[in-house]
Design a protein around this nucleic acid. Sequence first.
DNA 1: TATCAGTTTAGAATGATTCTAAAGTGTTGA
DNA 2: TCAACACTTTAGAATCATTCTAAACTGATA
Lengths: 130, 130
Amino acid sequence: MNDIKQFLRSNALRPTKQRIVIAGYLFDGTDKHVTAESLSTELAKRKHIISLATIYNTLHDFYENGLLKKLTLSADRVYFDTNTDDHHHFYSEKEQFLIDINKNIKVNGLPKTPKNKKINKIEVIVHLDK
Amino acid sequence: MNDIKQFLRSNALRPTKQRIVIAGYLFDGTDKHVTAESLSTELAKRKHIISLATIYNTLHDFYENGLLKKLTLSADRVYFDTNTDDHHHFYSEKEQFLIDINKNIKVNGLPKTPKNKKINKIEVIVHLDK
DNA sequence: TATCAGTTTAGAATGATTCTAAAGTGTTGA
DNA sequence: TCAACACTTTAGAATCATTCTAAACTGATA
């Protein structure tokens, strides 16, 4: 609890009740993939009712501070990943199935980066099913 | 024109005025990336006013028939690619910058596919800038 | 050429996300 | 300790890409 407060402060985020609850859930030591909706549902189960607006705000605040990764898996919703290490994903849109690939993947044969551009990240998505 | 009709028929798509115009634009021999919106704008420039609903319908019809690839680049809109070969992309969300990587990319070190699943496709997105 | 299934379309509906502006709350300095 | 203020939260409205609806239209076929 105080760890969480410190953790938020150290990321220049005021430790409000809501952020403490959300951070407590997200950063409990196990990797998680969430959407605004799934996070809301999960917190509601735990009797923490936080407005969707705040959930969106908080996910973005955490993302802006590098505490979450944003995943681009399908065009209909945004996923956030608590595992911020370089890693990739197996994904089945049909089944909303999403698992980390933590093994060291190598992408070989990339052409040179376009002029005046820098690579921000390389995302490998292994789509399952169709 | 008759080629286009034949082309559509051979894909079990009735060659309507609208589909002929859209196919004529999309499959003119140069690779293209479009969204429903950009396609609509591009056709309007050519004095072809086609309803957005039809543009969405047609893009999906073409996609379902394997004439287009669907790209998952950002969560706010769907991109379609006339290049249906296996290939990947450089992408800058900020600049709406999108180019094909046609070189033979190899992804090494993938773990084994989850039980009872089959890989549909592997998508590599090289994100530029942030 | 009449018929009908397949298409197109305007406009409404949907659903994720963002915005607004008013009320609430950490933080800080005295 | 507390006043004051900047930062947050929130309900509800707004936005925007996309899908749906159901009525009008049009290729294909006999």
